[in-house]
Write a protein that binds this DNA or RNA. Structure first.
Length: 406
DNA sequence: AGTATGCAAATAAGG
DNA sequence: CCCTTATTTGCATAC
């Protein structure tokens, strides 16, 4: 187990060094990870190059392992919402995230500015949260195995090829846990769970190329124990994943650069994120309406999923060009809000109503259409809002169920 | 006054 | 039309 961790961590450290971290941060983190982190990849059925957010890396305090390490910086919905009771305080901080439609990486490390300080801080057991996290991994893995088992269509090999077009395959679970102690905890049944589909080895670099790991003797020795399947996997997916011939530039680096440039120029134009968001509507692009300040902000800070970034890039690029053009020509931008394309609305359900809904849900999680209509009327909400609420609630419940004991 | 972010609505896509 | 699963956003509010 040890070897695996080190191997992966090194691989990751290299990636980081390669392009992700501001130079001055590389050193501290690299060493920190090397000694106190481990990575688990459970389910490599669809392997794709990972993408990392520099922002997530530089703003360590933002994601604390509260059982809610998701949102923009972590995709795996299986990791969502641990029961409140299992939340820990500041034991761990997410310091790095990567995500795409098929997988994500979450790296947790002890909170605080312990990077430069006493290394021993890292080794602190933090038993509670570690255990919980492990439980979570297990349940996620089990969850996926069950699902795969049921929908099993004879795709026997652990590596179901054709990575490119499986929008519905469940996301892989990558976790990088801190603390050496975790390594020990991992030995045992967790390994049994994740080994079948386990793929070790070089992760594809941000540019799609393989980041090969230096052959540290110790690690190579460890690799001999690697399951054959894993090796195959690594090879199968380690090659340049010429996945989407569709998207010309799915290169994270381009996105990164663009986002940076975008922000820069936006500011130069004296436009706020909110402005951009609403101005998008006047762009008159087919299915494009305006977006919220939140989304623009997230785009600029790369806190959207990779796919989302790719989808939004052309739109924002179009806006930028448009805006700069009219700026050059001194034309006051006629981007007045044409009431046309509006942005997605989100209704806020007040606490009292929410409580009622929860009460109904406890009694009947899947009310009939009529029942929903009745509830909607009683709470003075739109029927569809209530319906969606139940859907989302069921989703949430399912996650909770699997993340609870196991 | 602008920008982040937590939480969780709303949507997309396949049944 | 509704469901489920996976994802994309946005309201509210903290920063």
């Amino acid at each position: 187990m040890k070897w695996m961790s080190e191997y992966l961590v090194n691989s990751k450290a290299e990636q980081v060094k390669a392009s992700l971290l501001p130079p001055r941060m590389v050193k501290a983190k690299q060493s920190a990870w090397k000694d106190h982190s481990c990575v688990i990849q459970a389910d490599a059925s669809a392997y794709r190059p990972a993408w990392f957010s520099p922002l997530a890396l530089t703003t360590l305090p933002s994601f604390i392992f509260n059982g809610l390490c998701r949102d923009r910086t972590s995709n795996p919905s299986n990791l969502q919402a641990l029961p409140t009771s299992s939340r820990s305080n500041d034991d761990f901080t997410m310091c790095m995230g990567s995500w795409d439609s098929l997988g994500g990486v979450i790296i947790l490390q002890p909170s605080g500015n312990c990077l430069e300080s006493d290394p021993d801080l890292f080794v602190d057991p933090h038993a509670t949260s570690v255990d919980l996290l492990l439980q979570h991994v297990k349940s996620s893995v089990r969850f996926k195995q069950e699902r795969r088992g049921t929908e099993n269509k004879g795709s026997t090999s652990t590596s179901r090829q054709e990575t490119s077009s499986t929008p519905h395959s469940s996301p892989s679970v990558w976790l990088c846990l801190s603390s050496a102690r975790v390594l020990e905890a991992l030995e045992g049944d967790l390994l049994d769970h994740i080994t079948p589909g386990l793929a070790l080895g070089a992760m594809a670099g941000p540019d799609g190329s393989v980041v090969s790991t230096p052959a540290h003797p110790a690690h190579m020795a460890g690799m001999n124990h690697m399951h054959q399947a894993a090796i195959n996997m690594a090879h199968a997916h380690g090659l340049p994943p010429h996945m989407g011939m569709n998207d010309v530039d799915a290169d994270p680096r381009d996105l990164e650069a663009f986002a940076e440039r975008f922000k820069q120029r936006r500011i130069k134009l004296g436009v706020t994120q909110a402005d951009v968001g609403s101005a998008l509507a006047s762009l008159k692009i087919p299915g494009v309406g305006s977006l919220s300040q939140s989304t623009i902000c997230r785009f600029e800070s790369l806190t959207l999923s990779h796919n989302n970034m790719i989808a939004l890039k052309p739109i924002l690029q179009a806006w930028l060009e448009e805006a700069e053009k009219s700026h050059r020509e001194k034309l006051n931008k006629p981007e007045l809000f044409n009431g046309a394309e509006k942005k997605r609305k989100r209704t806020s359900i007040a606490a009292p109503e929410k409580r009622s809904l929860e009460a109904y849900f406890a009694i009947q999680p899947r009310p009939s259409s009529e029942k929903i209509a009745a509830i909607a009327e009683k709470l003075d909400l739109k029927k569809n809002v209530v319906r969606v609420w139940f859907c989302n609630q069921r989703q949430k419940q399912k996650r909770m169920k699997y993340s609870a004991c196991v």
